[in-house]
Amino acid sequence: MQIFVKTLTGKTITSEVEPSDTIENVKAKIQDKEGIPPDQQRLIFAGKQLEDGRTLSDYNIQKESTLHLVLR
């Protein structure tokens, strides 16, 4: 499924993921596309910071959901 990751600069990254993918996994995909190390990434969805060990389905993230990427 496709999800969108919006950066603070307003850029939107499209990523191909599975509901069973972990947040860590998603951060790795963002690193592949943007070159941002996962340890600098914080992903936010519905006002919550997403934890690395959890999966997209844990957070009820569905296709075409938009996550927000904040850098630390």
Score class of each variant (00 low, 15 high):
Q49C: 14
T7D: 08
I23T: 04
T22D: 02
I3V: 05
K27E: 01
R54P: 04
E24H: 11
P19W: 07
T55H: 05
A28H: 11
I44C: 12
V70P: 01
T9W: 15
R72Q: 12
M1A: 03
R54D: 04
T12K: 08
L69W: 00
D32N: 10
E18S: 14
E34P: 03
S65R: 03
L8T: 14
T22C: 03
V17R: 00
I36R: 03
F4C: 05
F4Q: 05
F4L: 06
L8I: 12
P37N: 07
E64S: 10
Q62H: 10
Q2E: 09
N60T: 04
V5F: 08
S20M: 09
I3Y: 00
T55C: 04
N25I: 14
R72S: 12
I61V: 08
T22F: 08
E24I: 11
T14V: 14
I36K: 03
I30Y: 02
L69P: 00
S57V: 07
V70E: 11
F4M: 06
V17D: 01
L50S: 00
T9N: 13
L43H: 01
S15E: 13
K63H: 15
L8N: 12
Q40F: 09
T14C: 09
E18P: 03
R72V: 14
K29W: 13
L43A: 01
T66E: 07
T66G: 02
T22V: 05
E18W: 13
K33E: 09
P38G: 09
D39W: 14
N25H: 12
S15G: 06
Q40A: 10
L69D: 01
D21E: 09
P38R: 14
P19S: 09
E18C: 11
S15R: 07
K29R: 10
E16L: 14
V26K: 00
I36W: 14
T66A: 04
P38W: 13
D32A: 14
D21H: 05
V70H: 09
L67P: 01
F45W: 08
K33C: 07
F45R: 02
R42Q: 12
V70C: 08
K29L: 11
Q41N: 03
T66Y: 07
I3L: 05
G35I: 02
G47T: 04
Q2G: 06
L67Y: 00
G47D: 06
L56G: 00
Q49D: 14
M1L: 06
Y59P: 01
F4K: 08
K48N: 10
T22K: 08
Q2F: 13
T9K: 11
I36F: 11
R54A: 08
T55Q: 07
G35P: 03
E51H: 08
L8M: 13
A28R: 15
T55N: 05
D58C: 03
I36M: 05
G35C: 05
D39G: 11
K11M: 10
P19G: 07
Q31R: 13
M1Q: 04
Q41Y: 15
E18F: 14
L67V: 08
L56H: 00
I3H: 01
V70S: 07
K63L: 06
T55P: 06
G47R: 04
K48I: 14
E18R: 14
D32S: 12
T66F: 07
E34Q: 07
T7V: 09
I36A: 04
K63Y: 07
D58N: 05
K6P: 02
K11L: 10
K48A: 09
Q62D: 09
